[in-house]
Nucleic acid binder design. Structure first.
Lengths: 112, 112
DNA sequence: AGATATACATATAAGTCTTATGTATATTTT
DNA sequence: AAAATATACATAAGACTTATATGTATATCT
């Protein structure tokens, strides 16, 4: 698990990227997917996730659809057209930021 | 200039890395060096820089030496042995974090 | 003379995230 | 059968970090 200060600021980018690649996802699913894809190194907390999802919905970046699964509620989030554009911008900005940091910190990454 | 939320959490890492490579630096010098090295894409604000430098000093990560240059004060910061160790850890953690994010966001970076 | 650069610093507010708490059902383990 | 864990939503209070604004003062450039 990475220190929280490192992950700060990447939450929106991660959410938007995931929802760009999946038609619809619900909150809990997002936390599990991120945990799985990062081998548990990034674990989103509910206290951070839900307010962010709500804010993105309020801004028209995401839309929701509530479904009953058994007796439980599940709230699916889908990214809008505007949201997809935003996702691309966010990911792109992060890529440039990393290039800058790689240079600044003189890093050698294990990627091709 | 990158959005502030992106840069959040990298301030300490940047400061420690710079001071690991330079015997001594003063606050203003750090802001200028970062601005220069990143082509103005990362500009440290004083409101963030000085409190952080003071905190690092209080924690024994940095030591200071105040010098008079003409009629002006200049406060040099030097990294301690403990600080150098911390710098290595921070940079290393950031490297691993970036590898994780590259995978998670499916990025292609422009580095060899 | 005025603007910009150098050089320190702090205070208030804004923003984001953590921790803790709450509700409720489903499944697995003991 | 009871207890623990997983699923699934959500919010509130506090902590932490950073931005913005402000303050002081000298040096240099136009």
């Amino acid at each position: 698990m990475y220190s929280s200060e490192l992950i700060k600021g990447t939450l929106k980018t991660i959410i938007l990227k995931l929802l760009s690649e999946n038609d619809k996802m619900y909150g809990y699913e997002i936390t599990q997917k991120v945990k799985e894809l990062t081998d548990g190194k990034i674990q989103l907390t509910e206290g951070a996730l839900y307010p962010t999802l709500h804010a993105l919905e309020a801004d028209g970046i995401l839309t929701t659809k509530t479904v009953n699964v058994g007796n439980r509620i599940r709230k699916y989030y889908t990214i809008t057209k505007t949201g997809k554009k935003m996702a691309k911008e966010k990911v792109s900005e992060f890529r440039e930021f990393m290039n800058t940091m790689v240079f600044l910190l003189d890093l050698k990454l294990n990627i091709g």
